[in-house]
Amino acid sequence: MIINTESSLPPGTIQTGAGYSNPPMAFSDYERSKKRKEQFRRIRRGATGVIVVLLLWHVMAVAYNLQLILPTPISVIQRIYGMLTLDNTRWLYGPNVYVHLLESLRRLLLGFGLAAILAIPFGLLVGRIRTLREYVEPIIKSIYPIPGIAWIPLAILWFGLGDTAVVFVVFMTAFFPMFFNAEAGARQINPLLVDAGRCFGAKGLSLFYRVILPATVPYITTGLRISLGGAWKMIVAGEMLASSQGVGFMLMEARFQFRAVDLMTAMILISIIGYLTEYLIVRLVEKRTTEKWEVR
């Protein structure tokens, strides 16, 4: 370790120990420059990976003359730019791209939000109350293995082709990860914390809200994250089969029109939006909770 001895010595002190007299730089500066170097290295390596894949992609497309089914990265990037700036040449998908994206986001928030509002409190209750757990565990466990996609035909039968069917399958997909995580979290709470809460006068709802909910937050954010990923995937699947709007519809329509550029463009937009929603929803929760009170 490098110690800055200069500040801790009284003025006029004659330094004798040879090794300690002139540290190369202050500890904090050393730390900062080390961090910067590490960060730079990480970015460099990540960028190298991305560039290699893009190059391979480009070479493949050009060398084997596959542009019709594998457009070059440059043409995809151009297309993204064109779409986002509403360049409407050869636009085959009805309303503009923003309408499709907003439609998908609206469905995501509706299905995911409803699932969160129901799954988290219900999971906490089932985790804490044994009687309730014994009642609901078998039914939950028998519905859980049915994949979200398998609900699509039934959803179409019940709600018709359109919005409600998509929101329904998103709900079914998003519900379980949040439920199981909240339940597991509520079960593993240090019993001493619950005892402390009760001894200091918390009971019933206040015990849930003031002790059990905050103590479960790390589990809940994990559940949110898994559910959000699943919900976004299910949006695309649902819209491909049961809707005439949204990014899933764009994908399917691009295939029908044999437009590989538009197809890949839509895929990249899906990736970007998926990342942004995760960042906005889950990171926001984490910033306001565990990041403040947990050891980093």
Partner: peptide, 26 residues
Amino acid sequence: PGTDRGVVFQEPALFAWRTVIENVEF
């Protein structure tokens, strides 16, 4: 249990999501 008794456990059993003063206020 009730607030007519004050308790201190073997472990501090503090609420990690509350600051020091918020713990004392609980």
